[in-house]
Design a protein around this nucleic acid. Structure first.
Lengths: 232, 232
DNA sequence: CATATGCGGAACGAATTAGTTCCGAAACTT
DNA sequence: AAGTTTCGGAACTAATTCGTTCCGCATATG
């Protein structure tokens, strides 16, 4: 700054000075529209669920989000980074799993977790996982993001419900809560992308009544059943 | 045939005539080496398990099998057909699942199915499935081939063991054998390509003792546990 | 021996696609 | 008003890969 600078200019710092001070750049020009971020990431997840990582092209994603590719690449430097971000942010929108039911019985709680909206959302997430599957074997970070966003919150919620039932004495303390809480998510994945059967309320209820609750039920304590003679 | 044809020519037909009659062409030239088929399909499965369908290139498969691409395309008209054949033929090599153990107890049978060679083979098959996953959502035929080759024989073997135990009265007739027989394969898939933890004997034994056998165990018959008051 | 096919390998053509660049218009700062 | 950045959209570049074709050699029939 020159000697001619007025005091006024010195006392009322310009935006560049503010930027330098606060580390929050006040940039010239049109501001970035951050609602486009969500639109692009959402389009990514849709395409991912439909055709998988390798079948997904940036042109299709941009077109579906009604965005130019320049807008996409201004935000993420590559397809891989965009997908990673899309998967990571799925984790945030899980209001369902935060407020757990408390009906008085474990069965009531498990059944109460089945709501039409969560069925649709869970199926979409499972399909996203399937779309990532072949990529996950090569990309460790992506596998962890997928697990953290799709499966782990679900397992965690079920574990809390089961642990609470164990603490209340509704199920025996010896129950393997850690293993059983993985049964529903893993069999859901098996059903959605191997069996390709509908992921609906009936399926989950029969899983709860046919596998989960029986596995947690108190049983003969250390009463080894007598071996039958081999049925040769 | 003309009137000049000798009787000899008529009675000893040439190879072309044999071909026409039997529909088994007797072709000129070097014969196709069918041991190359297996080498190429095996290389396909290896590459498929490593990098997935879309990451797999025909050049790499041919090179790994020490074959030229011409040799490959003489056998299958496209990458998709080759992979479909490779997956379908996996189904045949399942000697393990044919001769089921019969130890006298269900637990003994289930544990007896865990052998080092079957662990390795199962893990490879699960990785092949993972490599196909994103493709399966688009290609119905491939999804069915994968299921028939990898999962269904495994589920089927477990179902037989469990059904036999039910018939012998070792487990209650009310047990949901159909659902429980899917637990081990689906949780194995979950472990291998989502959790990415080792697929070993300890995992399977703890699954048998922590989930499968408890779920099949006789329990309080229609004894609804008293609801606790919600833990508000 | 003449002819025809299969072999591994390399080169080639066509199509796809990640990522870049440019356009005109809109929105923001100075 | 002037300058700067973002926007959607289109054109472009460079790399990859499927599938074909050709080569020289091996192996089969006639």
């Amino acid at each position: 700054m020159t000697q001619d600078d007025s005091i006024g200019e010195f006392e009322i710092p310009n935006d560049r000075a503010i930027e330098a001070e606060r580390g929050q750049p006040v940039r010239l020009g049109r501001k970035r529209d951050h609602t486009r971020d969500a639109a692009i990431l959402d389009a990514s997840l849709d395409v991912l669920a439909e055709v998988g990582y390798d079948g997904m092209t940036m042109d299709v994603v941009a077109a579906r989000a009604k965005a130019g590719k320049g807008t996409v690449y201004r935000r993420w430097s590559s397809k891989a980074e965009m997908v990673l971000d899309a998967v990571a942010r799925m984790e945030d929108n899980e209001a369902d799993l935060e407020r757990l039911p408390d009906t008085g019985t474990l069965r009531g709680d498990l059944v109460a977790m089945i709501r039409p909206s969560s069925l649709v959302e869970s199926e979409r997430r499972l399909k996203v996982m399937a779309g990532l599957a072949s990529m996950m074997s090569r990309h460790q970070e992506l596998a962890e993001a997928g697990n953290a966003a799709v499966v782990e919150p679900w397992v965690g919620a079920l574990r809390v419900l089961m642990q609470r039932a164990a603490d209340c004495g509704e199920i025996p303390a010896s129950a393997d809560v850690e293993a059983v809480s993985q049964v529903i998510p893993s069999m859901a994945a098996y059903r959605v992308f191997i069996q390709r059967k509908p992921f609906d309320r009936d399926f989950l209820v029969s899983l709860i009544d046919g596998v989960v609750l029986p596995a947690l039920r108190p049983g003969p304590v250390a009463a080894e059943p007598a071996p039958r003679s081999p049925t040769s």
